[in-house]
């Protein structure tokens, strides 16, 4: 498990290491919803330890892109390789990739009939066949990491939105994933709660997790991303390091988008 990185002391963003090892490689990927061409010729290579923020107007296909990576959406053309495994329609292959790739959703998607602790131990126990005690210890470790160990015996419905999202992050981490996908993790939260979730994500980034985040939080992008990708109409329009991306956008569509979200 490479997530021993999580136990290492935090480092400043400048020191964060990006290795040459490829975590995800997407080649010439296309996807259609019916006759709607939602993703067009996507080429993207993500190196281990990279923190990528994907931005773009709604309907630009950014969520669909990261949902293709763990096969929540099926792509029709092209090749996706995650952690050395090529995504095929074989269900075993898909389940193997999913257990290595954590995902955090906009609407948390916690299991409301299970306690916080049970939410976190479910997949380790059933997918990884971890003994219950060990799974619970791991779960408590990550709940402490997201700063809500005291809520372990409550049900998701009893927690605030920000707390729920932090539980969702802990739940993903309990599977000790090598890659984390974030699908607009703060879009459904009150402004006050956005910060607590972002803090958790920043901490995770500092520990060297490979992260792909679809988000509109440009402050977060500046702080932790080492690459920002801008998408429009199902295509990657521009990608660059955050400083360059925000200060010196090249594409007209990017300029318009940035002027709209940063201009107020």
């Amino acid at each position: 498990m490479t997530n021993t990185a999580l136990e290492t002391p935090s480092v400043t963003p400048g020191q964060m290491q990006v290795s040459d090892e490829v975590a995800i490689s997407i080649e010439n990927m296309n996807k259609w919803f019916g006759s709607f061409h939602v993703l067009r010729d996507i080429d993207l290579t993500v190196y281990r330890g990279e923190r990528i923020v994907i931005a773009g107007p709604s309907g630009s296909g950014k969520s669909t892109l990261i949902r293709c990576i763990n096969a929540l959406e099926e792509h029709q053309k092209g090749r996706i390789e995650v952690d050395g495994t090529v995504l095929s329609s074989d269900i075993k292959n898909i389940d193997a990739i999913r257990s290595e790739v954590g995902m955090v959703f906009q609407h948390f998607n916690l299991f409301p009939h299970l306690t916080i602790l049970e939410n976190c131990t479910l997949a380790p126990i059933w997918v990884r066949k971890t003994p219950k005690r060990e799974a619970e210890e791991t779960a408590m470790h990550f709940l402490e990491k997201v700063k809500i160990p005291e809520q372990a015996d409550k049900y998701p419905g009893q927690l605030s939105g920000g707390q729920q999202q932090r539980v969702a992050i802990a739940r993903s981490l309990c599977m000790k994933p090598r890659i984390m996908l974030f699908d607009e993790p703060t879009s459904a939260l009150d402004p006050e709660m956005i910060k607590e979730v972002l803090d958790t994500m920043v901490e995770l980034a500092e520990e060297g997790m490979t992260m792909l985040c679809v988000t509109h939080e440009m402050g977060f992008a500046r702080q932790v991303a080492n690459r920002v990708i801008f998408m429009d109409q199902g295509q990657i329009v521009e990608q660059n390091e955050p400083e360059e991306f925000f200060n010196n956008p090249q594409n007209e569509r990017t300029k318009l988008f940035l002027s709209q979200i940063l201009g107020h």
Binding site: A96, R98, M103, F105, L122, A123
Partner: peptide
Amino acid sequence: EAGDSLGLD
């Protein structure tokens, strides 16, 4: 989707 994304069959 949450179940799928955790690798449950």
